[in-house]
């Protein structure tokens, strides 16, 4: 049994607008995900994170279309599978998805236990109804939810309970990969903590084999992710371990992002926050050259000339910039804080 749960190679997917234009929201993404690991994907709104997660599920419905590339889940290219097989054997079973706002993720007119039965029936688990409900109860208790949730309607649950219920439902079949799309952004801070704990627990106890954690809240990643990929305008601009990316970002964008985090630690008071002016480029008209060029502090004319490719460093880290990592580190060191 291979340790690589998910292998993505140069994935390109696009939206087809009403005016028949193709907008490549995911424009050449590659990475690998191993058993027991968490990949965190960070980036600002609109960089393509959610599209990426939908794409990874193999879920292509208009206006989202598959462009090119391959997605290997447990060694199988899911794009080559017929939809029925994909639906029955993969969706929910090998790869699962936790949506962003759990508020509306559940059918308001159906009790939770009916939903459980529906999902489990679709996947030919061979269980009878009683066994299905027992399985559900196990999952619920694992997430500290009472049994009564099963009989409830979604409207009767609080926000935090709903989120946890959705997590439980997604992981009923112990998927190999769990994609969590901003699972806690809609919750208050204490609930956030609870949810994060639950996710980690699930990973530890192998209820999920691996996880992709998507967020725009960088501080979370430090506690959760093993690897972090920074996404910008449909591409990964940096890839590395959590420690590396957070404390030693190479790409100017990552550097700026990390600098914008408020860290309540000693000595940080004098540290001024950096903010990144401007907005991401319109993917309808992808600019030539580096996509971050507009907003980069270190821009040179060559940056706009050619598209940048990922540079891979010996230790496995990757970043997408024409400058060498030494040059970049130099430039960072020379930065004068606004108020010293």
């Amino acid at each position: 049994m291979s340790d690589t749960m998910l292998m993505v190679n140069d994935l390109k997917t696009y939206y087809r607008t009403r005016l028949k234009e193709n907008v490549y929201a995911v424009d050449g993404v590659s990475f690998g995900l191993e058993r027991g690991k968490v990949l965190g994907i960070a980036g600002e709104s609109g960089c393509g994170k959610s599209t990426l997660s939908l794409s990874l599920m193999g879920f292509y419905f208009p206006p989202l279309h598959f462009g090119s590339g391959s997605i290997l889940l447990n060694g199988n290219d899911i794009m080559k599978l017929p939809y029925e097989t994909l639906r029955k054997d993969y969706l929910g079973k090998q790869i699962a998805y936790i949506p962003q706002a759990a508020m509306n993720a559940l059918n308001p007119t159906r009790r939770i236990r009916r939903y459980v039965v529906d999902v489990l029936t679709e996947h030919d688990t061979g269980l009878d109804e009683k066994a299905m409900l027992n399985l559900a109860r196990e999952k619920l208790s694992f997430l500290n939810l009472p049994d009564r949730v099963l009989d409830a309607y979604p409207g009767e649950l609080s926000g935090g309970m709903k989120q946890r219920t959705v997590i439980a439902l997604s992981t009923l079949l112990n998927p190999s990969v769990l994609i969590a799309d901003e699972p806690s952004s809609a919750l208050d801070v204490s609930s956030q903590k609870v949810v994060m704990e639950m996710l980690r627990k699930m990973l530890r106890e192998s209820q999920v084999q691996s996880m992709i954690f998507i967020t725009h809240e960088l501080p979370l990643l430090r506690h959760v992710a093993d690897h972090i990929a920074v996404m910008y305008a449909g591409e990964f601009v940096e890839w590395g371990t959590a420690e590396q990316v957070i404390f030693d970002p190479i790409h100017p964008y990552s550097h700026a992002l990390m600098g914008s985090i408020i860290v309540p630690e000693e000595g940080m008071k004098s540290h001024s926050l950096s903010c990144i002016p401007g907005a991401p480029p319109n993917l309808k008209n992808v600019p030539k050259g580096c996509r971050f060029a507009e907003r980069c502090t270190y821009i040179t004319p060559e940056c706009r000339a050619e598209n940048q490719v990922m540079t891979t460093l010996p230790d496995g880290r990757q970043y997408r910039c024409r400058f060498s990592q030494e040059a970049l580190r130099d430039m960072y060191a020379k930065e004068v804080p606004a108020n010293a």
Partner: peptide, 13 residues
């Protein structure tokens, strides 16, 4: 609506 997407992503036909 969202729950349609979620249900489909879970493999419900």
């Amino acid at each position: 609506v969202d729950y349609v997407l979620f249900a489909k992503l879970q493999g419900i036909r």
